[in-house]
Each structure stands twice: as C-alpha cells, then as structure tokens.
Amino acid sequence: MNKSRLVIDSNKNNLLPNFKELIRYKDLFYTLAWRDFKIRYAQTLVGLLWAFIQPIATLTILYVVFGRFAKVETGNVPHLVFTVCGTSVWAYFSYVMTNSGNSIISAQDMVKKIYFPRLIIPLSKAVVGLIDLSVNLIILIILLFWYGIVPSANIIYFPLFIFMGVLAALGVGIWLSALTIRFRDFQQIVPFMVQLGLYITPVAYPAKFALQNLPDSVASIYFLNPMAGIVQGVRWSLLGGDAPGNMATISFVMVVLLFVSSLFYFSSAEKKMADIL
C-alpha cells in the first residue's frame, strides 16, 4: 500500500512553504475563503449591497475633494473614471492588508488545535478581497460605458497589472499576518499604514505630480510603495497617457521582493506560531 509519510524533525528548517502540501489542502482553502465571504455580511440589513456602498462612497468623496475642490488636472479623462482606476486596485490592496494582519490571531482557536499550512489563512483573505476588486471593476466598466470611453490598446497589459496588485497585496498581507503574531504593535500600525497609503499612492492624482514636484531621490522613495507603480500601470493600460517609467520599475521590483521575502519570513515564523499565540 502506498502510504504518505511524515517526518517531524527539530533539526530541519523549511525555508519556503511546502507548495505540494498547500495544494493538498486546497479544499480547506476554498472553505475558509467561502466562510469569510459568507460571514462578512451576515446579519447586516443590506447584505452584499455594502460591497457597492463602500466603494461608491469612497469614490464620491475623492471625486468631490480632488476633482471639484482641488481641480486635479486629468487631461481628457473624466476625473471619476481616472479615480476609479486607482481605487479599484487600492481597495483590494487595503482590504487584504487590513484583514491579513489580524487573520492568524483571530484564527488562533484553530491554529492551537489542529495542523494545516498556516499560509492558507492570509491566502484566503486575499481571495475574499477579490469581491471588492470585482465590485470596483464593475463600477469602472459602467463608468467607461457612461462616458463612452474606449480603452486604449494597452489593455492587454491590464491583467498583468491586476496580477501585480494581487501579488503586492499577498506579499504585504503575508508579512503582516506573521509579524502581528510576534508584535501586536502592528494591530495599531496597519490602520495607520492604510490611511497613509491612500495619500502616497497616486489614486486620486496622477503619478506625474510626484515625478514632477519631487527631486529624483525622493521620487524613488515614493515609488518604493509597490502600489504607486501598479496604480500608474492600471491607469495607463486602460486610459493610455503616461506609461509607467523607470521609477515605476522600482515599484515592480518591490512587489516581487515583498512577495518572495514574505514567503521566507512566514515559513520561519510558522513553526512557532502555536507557541506564541
């Protein structure tokens, strides 16, 4: 009989997550994601409608403040369409960031009582965040039709930038989920990071503002924010205009670095999670 074999060795350290095992636990992954989805709007009055109310409210405020009061120059593109390109990926990123941080702590009853690859927990949050992303994309498509805008030919790159956004969210989410167990300080830091992130990401203003008004050295720091390049890229792929330049490359390198390093850090932290919680 072909049996699975398990070796627990205190001397062996896993550098990276065991991907084979992750695939074996795919059903648990689906179930957890589905559970989060299910209870997200449980016992609310309007249910799934919240998924629309929140982004529409954010969009409206950003439009009023940046489009009407500050009159941010967005060229031929209506400000609303311009902004929704930014909020779509940003909303996803901030959801995953906010919810991954606490994810393992809130699942501690499970973590202390049963084994499964812990990585599944932050991963499932990233899947639930796709609701926010899709809702935003629906709003985006409606607005494109409303204003009669035909996307640019760059649209073939659109999936690539969305994929980068998911990867960035995962990287940050996995880092935070492991860090928060060790340092509960991050429960305080994350909301602040999300708030700050909206300002240092070109969501409601064009990225060229940062490039033109900041000295190169500071601009390169600005683009250390992975979302800076991604938001610029999403906008370019749909509406054309300024293509992501050299500076944006910094963002893309950051995405890859964050994601890969998060896997390493998570694996090293995983073993001790049940003891620290």
Partner: peptide
C-alpha cells in the same frame, strides 16, 4: 504538528 519539538525526530507513516 501543531507545535515543533525543541529536539528529536518523529516519523509517521
């Protein structure tokens, strides 16, 4: 496998 041993080895089939 909830927690790791400090030292030693276990094999389970």
């Amino acid at each position: 496998q909830i927690t790791q041993p400090t030292s030693g080895k276990i094999e389970i089939e």
